[in-house]
Nucleic acid binder design. Sequence first.
RNA 1: GUGGGUGUAGCUCAGCCUGGUUAGAGCGUCUGGUUGUGGCCCAGAAGGUCGUGGGUUCAAGUCCCAUCACUCACCCCA
Length: 420
Amino acid sequence: MIKAITGTKDILPEDINKWNKVEAIVRNVMNNFNYKEIRTPVFEETALFSRGIGEATDIVSKEMYTFVDRSETSVTLKPEMTASVVRAFIEHSLGKKYGLNKLFYISPMFRQERPQAGRFRQFHQFGAEALGSDNPMLDAEMIITSYKVMTELGLKNLAVKINSLGIPSSRENYKKVLKEYLSDKFDQLSEDSQKRFETNILRIFDSKVEGDQKIMNEAPVLLDYLDEESKEKFEQVTSLLDGIKIPYEVDPKLVRGLDYYTHTTFEILSGSVGSQSALCGGGRYNLLVEQLGGAQTPGVGFAAGIERILLACENENSLTLPEESIDIYVVRLDKELTQKANEIAVTFRNANLSTELDYTQRSVKAQMREANRLNAKYTLIIGGEEYERGEVVLKEMKLGEQKIFKLNSLPDIISAIKSV
RNA sequence: GUGGGUGUAGCUCAGCCUGGUUAGAGCGUCUGGUUGUGGCCCAGAAGGUCGUGGGUUCAAGUCCCAUCACUCACCCCA
């Protein structure tokens, strides 16, 4: 039996309403904040991601779905969306058309990692990017909008963490300080963290090993080494959040894996999912556009994982979905009436009523059972003596009441159903 | 890439430890409970190469090995 590729999932009809609800809320929130939807191809030239995300990151060095196509071009299924959005921004000169571009997306992403709770090889993100302004209002807006989506989905067990990575020069200075602090404690670090000491020292803060955490709790903190302007910007972001009463926690240990971040970084974590608890992550990237060959353009954005959000919703039982139902089920008493039943059903459907009927010549009892199973509000029963008199029976399922209508008065039936 | 757990009907699982005649339950599905009517109830039916391959044994769903898949955690991230 051929099965779905490891780490990919079918979204079945029984699940689709949850997805549609999340997407509807995302579109609504982003629309209220005047973000415009953008869609980019699922695959790009590999160089876009290796340059944009950073050659040394895990995503680029070991997680990308990369293949050479028939024209010998190395292409990659997008592992995240920011690089693609920035590429489109540059390619279509959006920066010249509008001073500020506020964009959002909902899209599948691909990373070849080992799947676990809340982590898949094809997963879905929604996110936003604001290109063309360095104003901290937009940094705050990233948190406000993503947090808003989650609270509208009824999520409670959330934590917003925020930090600033400043500008590259202060970060480099700080790395030296950190390196010095850790150099005499190197032997006490875990094996993984010893590797990180060389590859990306900041990420030792992420370590879940208790010994590492002890050491890092005492470590000097990047926030103390920021330049004045970065500090000021950071304060503006937090005071904007204070103004809107979004609860957050400054976490000097929050470092993020992608190379392109400058200044603000943030995450929204859920306590209701497994160990992959980051529902959303983002930050400012003032150097990325230039790095990808565009004009110097500040940017800020976020990405949120829809599967993780849905997992949190399920664990918190926060999603209320409307009960599924159809308007009317057309029952026929004998199979000679198949054509008539079909005509009536089409008439209802053309009148914008959701209508179903039997396709397997089943008994009346079976048809009624089916109508009940589909949660039909009404059944229309055709056949027998009434039909010979030119009449049909309309049954309201919840009450069990039946009324007789003339067969040629379907419009009356339609308006009767619609008026309820 | 590393480690743990689990693979028996469409779904959730029992049976495995202490091998032994036709492999079970609940839910779901289908049919029926009198001529043309759902939900509740009752009856019946369909549906399983016991993940796959090998081994031990007179005998394997049950024991052993391998393999694959799923799953959780590390790593990393959404």
